[in-house]
Structures are given as C-alpha cells and as structure tokens.
C-alpha cells in the first residue's frame, strides 16, 4: 500500500449525525450510545473486533436496521419510521456489501441502470450512459453485458461500487468490501475506493485494511462491544492509541 496520503479536506456541511443511538436485538444491547458526526467529504474508517457492532452502525444509517433510541439525521432528514423519508435517504446513500449482492438475473449494465431508471425515473439511454461512465471508472466497461455470475469476485465488487455510484449518492457506505475476496483481488477494489476518495466522496467504511485506512481516512473509529472506544486521525490512531483495548486490537491485526 502506498504511504502517500490523500490531502483533500472535509467540508463543513454535516452529512450524518448520530445522537446517542441505541439499538437492541431482543435483549441484547448491540449499540450503546453511539455519537457520530460526519461532514461532507469526510472519510471515516470503522474498525474493531468481530461482533462489535460496526455493520449494525452503518446499516442504521440507511435503515437496513432500525435503532430504538436516539436520533439519526442524514443530509438534513431524520430517520423515522416514515417510509417516504427512508426512501429519500436511501436514494442519497449508496451501500456496498461484503458479499456484493449483485442481482444475478440481470446483466452488469442492467444492475447499474435498475435504480436510476426505476427510482430516479431516468430514461433508459441516459441511465445506460451514466452506467457506462461509472463502469469505465471502475475499469470494467467491457463486462457490461455479462451476468454477475460470469465475473470474478473483484470484478463483481467493482460492479457493485459502480452500481451504487450510478444513483449519484452523496454518501457511500462500505461494509467490509474486501473481506470476501481473494488477496490478489483486494488491491483492485481498494484502488477503486481510493480513486473514489480522491473525488471527494463522503465515505464510511468498515474495513480491516489498515493500509487503506492510513491512506484515505480522515478519522478512524474503533468500536468494541457496541461502543465507540476511540476515534482519532490515522497518524494519531496508529502511533499513539489511547486506550488499552485499541492497543491490543492493533497489536493483533498489525502483527
């Protein structure tokens, strides 16, 4: 991984605000008092041990999971049980999953044009032009007419990124986008994400790729047992972690 750092600074506009968010699965308290502000253009990496609630946190932001207490405000709209607002927020928030979740019955191009056409009501030609633009950006325009099942894992994940970008989202969420990939494919996906970061996208990314975190993140958030234990800029986070828990964790994953 390059040691070069992306310098683009975050803006002032608040894109995501989580205020004392709490969530339970049955009796199990998964998220405890999460407070998090994300400004426009800010890139945040979430890390932490398995089961610490990282996925749950970012899935609350587009309401794939419902929180039971606290407030989540995305781009000025509060997430309540109002379906209209939820759909409005989901239009602005793109998500990339660990297992890609491409639609296997549609071609790569159709995967990319589906939401623009049916949610944004874009005409087919325009949607296809947008899709090809983003497929070129993730460097697989030649795969447009194939089905997801015919692509490698790395290619599928890049399609998934392009698919999310086709909705022109203001925020991108990534939930361990590289952890289902073979090592040789991790780099192609991370490179795509670094390019996206260079374009100034607001990004929240759950990952254990610490090289990536060091390169692109403005802020690294360490979670454990449903709490934010520590957050700091990458340099600070890696060289001088404050809590004992963070230090043990870093010791484990950095060897």
């Amino acid at each position: 991984m390059t040691e070069k750092k992306l310098e683009s600074a975050a803006g002032d506009k608040l894109m995501i605000r989580m205020e004392s968010v709490n969530k339970w699965y049955g009796e199990f308290h998964v998220l405890k008092d999460i407070n998090l502000d994300v400004r426009q253009g800010e890139r945040i990496v979430l890390c932490g041990p398995s089961g610490s609630g990282k996925s749950t946190t970012i899935r609350c932001i587009n309401r794939l999971e419902e929180h039971q207490a606290g407030r989540i405000i995305v781009d000025g709209v509060e997430l309540t049980s109002d379906l209209k607002q939820i759909e409005a927020i989901r239009r602005e928030v793109g998500m990339v999953f660990q297992h890609f979740n491409l639609f296997p019955h549609l071609t790569v191009l159709e995967n990319c044009t589906l939401a623009p056409m049916w949610v944004r009501h874009m005409p087919r030609r325009e949607a296809e032009a947008v899709a090809m633009h983003f497929l070129e950006r993730v460097r697989i325009p030649e795969q447009a007419l194939k089905y997801p099942g015919q692509l490698s894992g790395g290619q599928q994940q890049r399609v998934a990124i392009a698919r999310a970008l086709c909705m022109k989202p203001a925020i991108m969420l990534f939930d361990e986008p590289t952890s289902a990939l073979d090592p040789e494919m991790v780099k192609e996906v991370l490179d795509t994400m670094i390019e996206l970061a260079e374009s100034g996208m607001t990004m929240l990314c759950v990952t254990h790729e610490m090289g990536f975190a060091r390169t692109v993140a403005h802020r690294i958030i360490f979670m454990d047992r449903g709490e934010i234990v520590e957050q700091a800029a990458p340099d600070e986070f890696f060289s001088n972690p404050k809590s004992e828990r963070t230090r043990t964790f870093l010791g484990q994953i950095l060897h």
Partner: peptide, 12 residues
C-alpha cells in the same frame, strides 16, 4: 442480501 441490496437502492 438481495432484499437488502434492493432496499438500500431506494427501490420500495
């Protein structure tokens, strides 16, 4: 994952 991906795109 298919349900989630569809929902996350804002398809109702």
């Amino acid at each position: 994952g298919q349900y989630e991906a569809a929902a996350a795109m804002g398809l109702g």
